[in-house]
Design a protein around this nucleic acid. Structure first.
Lengths: 334, 334
DNA sequence: TTGAAAGCGCTACCAC
DNA sequence: GTGGTAGCGCTTTCAA
C-alpha cells in the first residue's frame, strides 16, 4: 500500500470524489462531519500533504511574502549585515504568526522593473522592501501600479508608497540633544549621509544643535555602511580632525560599533573621553560592551506593523504610512 | 494594449503557439533563432514574466530551498538570534549564487513527521536544517526516506544524515588549550551542555585539560542559549563559585558576549582578570569591544558547503558529511 | 521548426 | 452533502 501522492489517490482510497477530499482538507465548503473526520484521519495516517503549489495555482494565493533588499552599489554580502538579519528575523516571526512564509531573494536592481518582474513571477502575495537605498524613484513608480508592497524606510511629504519607519529627523534630534545633555560640545555626525533616511537623521542633528545655539553645527564625517569599511573610515576621519570630538552621533548601530572600535584603537575610552550614540536599537547593541546607547526604531514592532499593513494591502485596502516614534535607549556609551 | 498576463496571450500577440513561446523563453528545445529573438524582445518590451508556479508544477522543480530551524522547547524569537541570522544570511547568499531562493519557515516540531510534511507540500526542492537540537532522532529517521536534506550540526559515528559542521571536539580542545597557553589555570566551561554539538565541545575541553595534566577538569556551568537568560545564568553561577576562574570557554559567541557582560557587571575586566573565548566565529565577534577571541567554524564556508552538498543530493547523488576544521581566532578577550 | 493537445494537483462551479 | 468537470499557466510529448 503506497502512500497517496495526490488528492485523487486519497479520494479513491476513501471512496469519495476529489472534490469532497478537497473540501474536507481545506476546511472550506460543506462536508458532513463524519466524512470529514474519516478523510482527515486517513490523510494523516497515510502522511498525505496537499501540494501547496497546485493549490496556489488554483486559488492564486501563495501565503508567502517576499523580502527584497535593494543593493544599490554595495553588493558585498548585504544579507549578512546585522541590520538586515535582524529585520528578516523579526519579519519571519511576524509573518509566521500571521500564517505566511518569508521568501528571501537577493535582488540586484538591474532596471526600473526589478520589483514588478519579481512579483509577476507569481511566487508571492506581496512584497516587503527593506530600505529605499538609491531606488526611491523606482519604488515610488512601482507603487502606482502594484499595491501589495510595504517599504521599510523614511517618508517624504509627497510620497505615494506605503512606508514604515521611524521619524528619522526626530530621532536625529533626540540623539543630538542627548549628547548635549550629557555635556558634549564638540559633536560629530559619522556615517552615510545619502538616501532619505540618513539624510533626515543628519538634518535632525543639525536642527537640535541649532536650537541649542550651536551655530557651527555638527562636523559631518561621511562613511561607508559596511562595518569594516566604516571602521577604516572612522579611523582615518577622526585622526584627521583638528579638534577631537566629545560626542559622536553614529548613523546606525553598526556604524556606532565600528566607531567605538576605532576610538579604542586610537586610545580613547568610551564614554569617558568620547560619548557615542547609535541608531536602530538592534538587540546586538545590548550585547556589546559597553552596551550601546542608541535611538531605538523598535524594529520588532516595525516588523509587525509592516506585516499588518501588507496583509491589509493584500486584501485590497488602501493604507497610509506609519511613523514610529524613535525612543532614546540610554545604556553605557554616553 | 494590455500587457500579457500569461504565455498564451503573448503567443497570440506574437502570432505563434504557446509551445513555441515556452521553448523560446525557457531556452530549452529547438526554436529558430529569428523566432526566439522576436519573442524575447516582445516579452521584455511588454514586461511579460512567466508564472514560476505553473512552471514549477509542470517541471516539479521549484528552485527554492527551505531552511528549517527546529525549535525544541525554546520558542522565543529564535529567528532573531545572531547565530541563525548569520547563518540565514550566508545561506541566502550562497543559494542566490547558485540560482536558488531561500524560504524561511518557522516550524515548531509537532510530531515525528514535521520535516516530511514540510517537504511534501512541494514548495522546495530540498531542505536545510539548522542545528540538530533535540530532533536528532527525527532527522536521522527522515534521512532514511528523504535525501535532499543537509543538516548543520555535529556528526556522530553511526550517523546516516548528511551534516556539515565543525569538529566540535577538536574545537573545544583548541579553545581550552588556548586558555592554558595564556596561563589560565582555573578553567570554566559555561553554556548549554546538551545536544551533540555542545556535548562534543565540552568533551574537547575536558580532554585538553586532561592531556595537560589538569586532572580536576573544567568546572561546568550549564546555562541557557538565549542571550539575556544566559546573562542571568552567568551572573548567578559565577557569583556562586568558590574560586573565581581565570579562563572561561563559552559554548558559543552569543554566550561569550553574555558572559563578558556578566563579568563586567561583577567588576571584572576582560581579559585582564578573566579570559573568555567563544565558539562560532560570528562576524559580530569582530564588532564587539573588546573583539572576541573565538573558535571559528567558518560559517560562510559552511553555508557554501551546505549549498553545494544539497544541490548534489538534489541531483540524486549520495554525499558524505563534511567536517570543518575549527580555527582559533585570537582577538582581545584572551 | 512549429502547432495541437494532454496533463501537473488542486479548487470551484454546477448539477443532483 | 457530494460527484463531475473545467481550468489555473505552464511544459512536453507527438504529429505535421
Amino acid at each position: 500500500m503506497n502512500n497517496p501522492t495526490n488528492l485523487k489517490q486519497l479520494a479513491d482510497m476513501a471512496g469519495v470524489s476529489a472534490g469532497t477530499v478537497s473540501r474536507a482538507l481545506s476546511g472550506s465548503g460543506r462536508v458532513s462531519a463524519r466524512t470529514r473526520e474519516r478523510i482527515m484521519t486517513l490523510a494523516s495516517k497515510l502522511g498525505y500533504q496537499p501540494n501547496l503549489l497546485a493549490r496556489t495555482m488554483r486559488t492564486r494565493k501563495t501565503n508567502t511574502v517576499g523580502m527584497l533588499v535593494p543593493m544599490g552599489h554595495d553588493d558585498l554580502q548585504h544579507l549578512s549585515d546585522p541590520f538586515f538579519n535582524t529585520m528578516s528575523g523579526f519579519l519571519a516571526d511576524a509573518l509566521a504568526d500571521r500564517g505566511y512564509d518569508l521568501l528571501l531573494s537577493r535582488i540586484i536592481p538591474a532596471d526600473e522593473r526589478w520589483i514588478e518582474n519579481y512579483v509577476n513571477s507569481g511566487r508571492v502575495d506581496g512584497v516587503l522592501i527593506i530600505g529605499q537605498s538609491n531606488q526611491f524613484a523606482v519604488i515610488e513608480a512601482t507603487s502606482l501600479r502594484y499595491h501589495p508592497m510595504v517599504v521599510w524606510g523614511g517618508k517624504v511629504p509627497s510620497q505615494n508608497h506605503c512606508s514604515v519607519g521611524s521619524d528619522n529627523r526626530a530621532g536625529g534630534m533626540l540623539a543630538a540633544r542627548h549628547l548635549l545633555d550629557r555635556g558634549c560640545r564638540q559633536i560629530v555626525y559619522l556615517g552615510p549621509v545619502e538616501g532619505p533616511e540618513f539624510g533626515a537623521r543628519l538634518d535632525g542633528v543639525r536642527q537640535a544643535l541649532a536650537l541649542a545655539g550651536h551655530l557651527a553645527g555638527p562636523v559631518v564625517l561621511p562613511s561607508h555602511c559596511e562595518p569594516s569599511a566604516a571602521y577604516d573610515d572612522a579611523l582615518a576621519l577622526l585622526r584627521n580632525l583638528d579638534r577631537q570630538p566629545d560626542g559622536i552621533v553614529a548613523a546606525s548601530d553598526v556604524t556606532a560599533i565600528s566607531v567605538i572600535r576605532a576610538l579604542s584603537t586610537m586610545g580613547y575610552s568610551v564614554p569617558r573621553d568620547v560619548k557615542v550614540i547609535g541608531y536602530d536599537g538592534l538587540p546586538l547593541g545590548e550585547l556589546v560592551s559597553p552596551p550601546l546607547t542608541t535611538i531605538d526604531q523598535q524594529l520588532q514592532r516595525g516588523a509587525g506593523l509592516m506585516a499588518d499593513l501588507l496583509l491589509r494591502r493584500m486584501a485590497g485596502e488602501q493604507t497610509g504610512c506609519q511613523l514610529i516614534d524613535p525612543v532614546l535607549v540610554c545604556r553605557e556609551t554616553t
